[in-house]
Amino acid sequence: MTTPSYTFNARFSPPGIRDPMGHADPTGRTDRVFRHPDHKFEWTTEEFSTWCAIVSKEWGYTVEAGCIGYALDKDPWGRDKQLGGASQVAAFERMDDANSKRKRERRTRVVFAALEKKDPHRLVVTHHFAAHPQAGRPHQLEEIGAALLRTFEGWGESVLRVEDLWFSDDTAILCGGSVELLIETAERDSRLQLRRIPGQRKGNWTLELLGGVQRPKDSWSAARTSQHEEIVEEVSMEEDLNQDQEHPLCSGNSLDAWNNSGTDTWREDNNWAGSCIDNGVGWGWATPEPVHNY
C-alpha cells in the first residue's frame, strides 16, 4: 500500500516555514496544508511507520516500510535523506503460524462487532472528474516526437521508461490520452528506439535516444576546436567550421532542421497522421480516454 508523505512537503519551502500554497486538510482533523486537493490525509514518515507496526502486530503480519518518488533535484538545505520520497510504501506479508491466525480471527470478530453498532454510511460529497478537453484529440506525430526529444534533452538522459515520458511535459495531453500513440510515435521516429520488455507492462518499456543526448553547442565547439589545435594545427578556420556544420550533433542539425528534413516516407506519414486525426479514424479511439495529470 502507498500513501502521500507529509514529511516530503517540506521540500517546497525553507526549513521552519510551511508552504502557504498548499491545500487545507479537507477533513478538518488537522491544521496541515496538503500538497494536493484530492488528498484526504497526509502522514509524516513517523506516523506511517508507527501505524504499520501496530496493525501488522495486531493482525499477524510482518511489514517493511519505506519511501518512493525521490526528487530529481537536490534539496538546497541538505534534507534529502531526512525528507525521503513523495510517497510512503509498505509491504505487508501475512504470517500463517497458529498464533498469527488466532490474532486475525480475534481482530476480525472485534471489527464486525463494532460495525453492527455503527450508523449506516452516508454520502458526504461527490467529485466529478471530467475528461481533459484534449482527450481523444491528439496532436500530430511530429509534435509528439519533438516533445519526447525535449524531455530526453532536458533531463540529460539517453534511456527513459514509457511511464516516465508519459507523465512529463504534457505528453499525455499531446497524445490525446492514448499511450498507444506515444508508442507509435516512438516506432516511427528514426531517432528513437522502442524496447518492448516481455512480461512487463507498457509503462516499463523503454525508449532510447539514438546517439545520446546532444551536448550544448558552445562546449561541443570548444572541445572540437581544442582537438583540432592539438592534432591538426594547419586546418583552417573555414575548414573547421564546415566540418562542425556537417557533424550530426552540431547546430546545423538542430531539432527543427531534423524534423523538416526527413524522408518522403516521413512526410507521407505526417500527412497521413493528420488525415487520420481530422477524420477521427485509424487510431482506435472509439471511447476517448481521459488524460490524467499527477
Rank of each mutant, 00 (worst) to 15 (best):
K81L: 11
K81M: 07
K81F: 13
L83P: 08
G84W: 09
G85N: 07
G85P: 15
A86H: 09
S87L: 13
V89W: 02
A90R: 06
E93Q: 10
R94Q: 10
R94K: 14
R94D: 09
R94I: 08
M95Q: 09
A98L: 04
A98S: 14
K101Q: 15
K101F: 12
K101E: 14
R102F: 14
R102Q: 14
T108D: 15
R109A: 14
E116Q: 10
E116D: 09
E116Y: 11
K117C: 02
K118W: 12
R122T: 13
L123E: 02
V124E: 12
V124Q: 13
V125T: 14
T126V: 13
H127I: 09
H128C: 06
F129T: 06
A130T: 05
A131T: 11
Q134V: 10
A135W: 04
A135R: 03
A135M: 12
R137L: 00
R137C: 00
L141M: 02
E142Q: 05
G145H: 03
L148I: 03
L148D: 04
R150L: 08
G154D: 01
W155K: 01
W155H: 01
G156K: 01
S168W: 07
D170C: 03
T171V: 04
L174C: 05
L174I: 00
L174S: 02
C175Y: 00
S178Q: 15
E180H: 15
E180S: 06
L181K: 02
L181S: 02
T185K: 03
T185C: 08
D189V: 12
S190R: 04
Q193A: 15
I197R: 09
P198G: 12
G199A: 02
G199T: 01
R201P: 07
K202D: 03
G203L: 01
N204R: 03
T206C: 00
T206I: 02
T206H: 00
L207N: 00
L207S: 00
E208L: 08
E208C: 11
